[in-house]
Amino acid sequence: MPFFTYVLQSKTTGRLYIGHTQDLQRRLHEHNTGQTKSTRNRGPWQLIFARSFNTRAEAVRFERQLKRLKNPQRILEFLRER
């Protein structure tokens, strides 16, 4: 079963959230229903990017690469290039 690195954007604030999961639909539902502490009260969230990987290690590596960019504009530019 593949792993995904994903980027969500808040429809109300524009804030980005970067994470990884094996079940993308379940995870998006968790974010939008307040089950995830770090995204609670900041939604609704929309999926703006997802990439699949064969292993969790690869997904985590790409997640860390995105998080190192820090600036949301740089993250969005990087994703547009992909």
Results as ranks from 00 to 15, higher is better:
28 L>V: 00
81 E>V: 15
39 T>M: 01
59 A>S: 14
57 A>S: 14
76 L>D: 07
33 T>F: 08
39 T>Q: 05
48 I>W: 01
38 S>I: 08
28 L>Q: 00
80 R>F: 09
4 F>P: 10
61 R>N: 15
74 R>Y: 14
72 P>V: 12
4 F>V: 14
33 T>S: 01
25 Q>G: 12
73 Q>M: 15
3 F>C: 13
63 E>P: 06
62 F>A: 02
74 R>V: 14
29 H>C: 08
78 F>P: 08
62 F>R: 01
32 N>R: 01
74 R>D: 13
37 K>Q: 14
42 R>F: 08
64 R>N: 13
2 P>K: 15
20 H>Q: 14
63 E>K: 00
49 F>S: 08
68 R>A: 09
51 R>G: 12
23 D>T: 14
50 A>K: 04
38 S>G: 09
66 L>T: 03
10 S>L: 05
36 T>S: 08
70 K>W: 12
78 F>W: 12
79 L>S: 08
13 T>V: 07
42 R>V: 05
19 G>S: 00
65 Q>Y: 12
45 W>K: 00
27 R>V: 07
79 L>N: 05
61 R>T: 15
50 A>W: 12
71 N>T: 11
6 Y>P: 01
3 F>N: 14
31 H>T: 06
17 Y>C: 04
24 L>K: 04
65 Q>V: 13
65 Q>P: 11
48 I>N: 03
80 R>Y: 07
27 R>W: 07
10 S>Y: 01
67 K>R: 07
68 R>W: 03
18 I>K: 02
7 V>R: 00
6 Y>E: 00
62 F>T: 02
9 Q>H: 03
5 T>E: 06
15 R>K: 10
47 L>Q: 06
8 L>K: 00
47 L>A: 02
77 E>F: 07
80 R>E: 13
79 L>E: 08
44 P>I: 04
49 F>I: 12
14 G>Q: 04
27 R>Y: 05
10 S>Q: 08
7 V>M: 06
52 S>M: 15
33 T>P: 03
47 L>E: 04
7 V>Y: 02
16 L>D: 02
75 I>T: 03
56 R>L: 10
43 G>I: 02
44 P>K: 00
9 Q>N: 04
24 L>S: 03
